[in-house]
Design a protein around this nucleic acid. Sequence first.
DNA 1: GTCTATAAGATGATAGAC
DNA 2: GTCTATCATCTTATAGAC
Lengths: 185, 185
Amino acid sequence: MVRERGLVGLSLRELGGRVGMRAQSLYSYFTSKNEIYDAMFRQGYETFMGEMALPPAPNEPTNVLAFIEAGSLRFFDFCVSDPVRYQLLFQRTIPDFEPSPESWALALRAYDRGVGGLRQLGFDDESLDMWTAVLTGLTDQQISNDPGGTRWRRQVPRAVRMLVTEFAPHLVTPPRARPRRKATR
Amino acid sequence: MVRERGLVGLSLRELGGRVGMRAQSLYSYFTSKNEIYDAMFRQGYETFMGEMALPPAPNEPTNVLAFIEAGSLRFFDFCVSDPVRYQLLFQRTIPDFEPSPESWALALRAYDRGVGGLRQLGFDDESLDMWTAVLTGLTDQQISNDPGGTRWRRQVPRAVRMLVTEFAPHLVTPPRARPRRKATR
DNA sequence: GTCTATAAGATGATAGAC
DNA sequence: GTCTATCATCTTATAGAC
C-alpha cells in the first residue's frame, strides 16, 4: 500500500480493507499507526541485513577492490529497488514517527555490519562517513532524478575506486616498487 | 510555519490565522494549496541563486581549488541552514505536489548556474553527476544525522580535493615536471 | 478582499456488543 | 478477534453576502 500511495498515504481504513477487516480491528494487532510504521521499519532492516549477507553472486569479486564494489552495488540496488522502503529506512520524513529503541538498535547493528568489512580494511570513522555520504548520495540522485535508469549507478565503480584510492591507497596500488624518496638519511 | 511543522504540516486554517485572516480568504491570493508550495519553491530557488551569486567572502579563495571549495561550502551551508527548504527544493517528498513548468525552468537555470563554473573548468556531464551526488550526499547526512553539528561539513574540503583530483587532475597537480614516459619514439 | 456558512470528505482512535 | 457505532477532530475547497 505505501509503495502505491507513499508513506504518508498509509490509511488504516484502507489497510483494514486490504486485509479483509475493518480498520478498528487492526488495533488488536497494533496499538497505534506508528507501531505499524515501526514494524515496517524493523522488517525493512531485517530484509536489508539478509540481502547484504547473501553469498557473492556467480560473477564473483576476485580481489579486494572488486569485493568492495560488489557490496556497494548490492547496497545501491537494494535501495533503488524500493524507493519507499529507502525513504522509510534511510531518510526520515514521516511526521511524528520515530522508530522504537529496539528498532533503532537494529538499524545500528545493520550499519555496523554494512561497514564492518571496510573497517577491517583500515577505514577510519571519517572515511566511513565519507563513504556513507557518497553512496547514499548516488542512490538518492538515482531515485529522484532517474528512476528506473542507470545514470548514477554507472558511477558507482568509479566512486568506489576514488574512495579506496583516497582512504586505503595500498589496496589499489599494488606495492611493487616504492616511490623513490627525496634522500636517504 | 513549515519550518516548525514540516512541509506536510502546512494547514490553510493556521496559515490564515498567522497572517490575520480566515483560511478561505487565502483563495484570493492562491487558487490552491499547491500554488502556495509552488510559490515557496520558486522563492527558494530565487534565494538560492542570489546566495550563490554573492561576491566571495573576505576570507577569499586564492586559487582555483580554494574557489571550488568555497562554492561547495556555500552550497552546503545554504542547504543545512534550512532543512525544510532543502527538502522542498532538492528532495521531492510532498504528495501530489509538483512544481509548475515555470518553476521547473527556474530550477534548471539554478542548477546550470551552480555547476557552470565547474563545466568551464572542463568537467564533463558524468563528473558533474558525481559532483552533485557527493555534495548532496554530504548535505543529506549532515541534515539527517548531525543537525546543528559539523561532522559531515568537515569532509567537504576533502571531498572537493578528491573530486578535482579524479576529474580535473591538472588543477591540483601543478604542471611542473611531466612524468617521464616509457620511451621516446 | 474579507467575511460567514457550509460542503464533502478524510483521518486516527475508543467503547462496548458478540 | 472482529464487529458496529461513534467521537472528535482535521482537511481543502466553494458559494455568496458585504
